[in-house]
Computed example of a mutant assay.
Amino acid sequence: MDFSLIGEKLRAVEAENLRVRLMKQAETHRIAERMPGIPIACQINATETSDHIERAWFGGEGTVIAFFENDNVMVRATVSFLLDFLAQREPWQDWDVCIFDYDVTWCAAITHNDEAKFVRFA
């Protein structure tokens, strides 16, 4: 998959720094029974869930970071384009994706099991 079609692919150092910040924020919002080695999207104990990613979770248009965990790729994209892209994915595109703001104050996630969830960290 060419993730650069979604938006700007982040450089390795910036992506790693954001991944570490995301994991640190998610630590206090983990589902206790889940193993630490599984994708972050699957570990998050959400405050809101749905059968799909809700546009309302994003508070309007803007730019977000999307972490496609299975491919270890982070992309900066607009909310609108990213959500349209995810809504059109094929059944075999069973990614674990964390979507969050650059300050990592919240995270929306979709898992390979089609769980959609949201948590506000701050």
Rank of each mutant, 00 (worst) to 15 (best):
M1N: 13
D2R: 07
F3E: 05
F3H: 06
S4P: 06
I6R: 02
E8K: 14
E8N: 10
L10V: 04
R11V: 13
R11D: 15
A12C: 08
E14R: 00
A15G: 09
A15S: 08
A15P: 01
E16A: 12
E16V: 07
L18W: 00
L18K: 01
R21T: 01
R21K: 11
L22I: 06
L22Y: 00
Q25I: 00
Q25M: 07
Q25K: 10
Q25P: 00
E27T: 06
T28Y: 05
H29I: 05
R30F: 00
R30C: 12
A32W: 07
A32P: 09
E33Y: 10
R34E: 03
R34K: 09
M35W: 14
M35F: 14
M35N: 15
P36T: 02
P36Y: 06
P36L: 04
I38D: 03
I38C: 09
I40F: 06
A41T: 05
C42N: 14
C42H: 10
C42I: 08
I44H: 05
A46N: 12
A46C: 14
A46D: 04
A46M: 06
T47N: 11
E48I: 10
E48M: 14
T49F: 10
T49R: 15
S50W: 09
I53K: 05
I53T: 07
R55K: 11
A56Q: 12
A56F: 04
W57R: 08
F58M: 09
F58N: 10
F58A: 08
G59Q: 08
E61V: 03
G62D: 09
G62P: 03
T63D: 15
T63M: 11
V64D: 02
I65H: 05
F68K: 00
E69S: 05
D71V: 12
N72W: 03
V73Q: 00
V73H: 00
M74H: 06
A77H: 01
A77D: 03
T78R: 08
T78Y: 04
V79C: 05
S80H: 13
F81G: 14
L82T: 00
D84Q: 15
D84C: 07
D84I: 02
D84H: 10
F85V: 03
Q88E: 15
R89M: 14
R89Q: 11
P91N: 08
P91D: 08
W92A: 08
W92Y: 12
W92T: 04
D94Q: 11
D94W: 11
D94G: 13
D94Y: 10
W95T: 02
W95R: 02
D96G: 02
D96P: 09
I99P: 05
D101Y: 05
Y102K: 07
Y102W: 07
Y102T: 10
Y102L: 10
V104N: 00
T105R: 12
T105C: 14
W106E: 04
W106P: 04
W106Q: 06
C107V: 01
A108H: 01
A108T: 01
A108W: 02
A109F: 14
I110T: 15
I110W: 11
H112N: 08
N113E: 15
D114G: 04
D114S: 15
E115A: 12
A116L: 09
K117F: 06
K117E: 05
K117D: 02
F118A: 03
F118C: 06
R120S: 11
R120Y: 14
F121L: 01
F121Y: 07
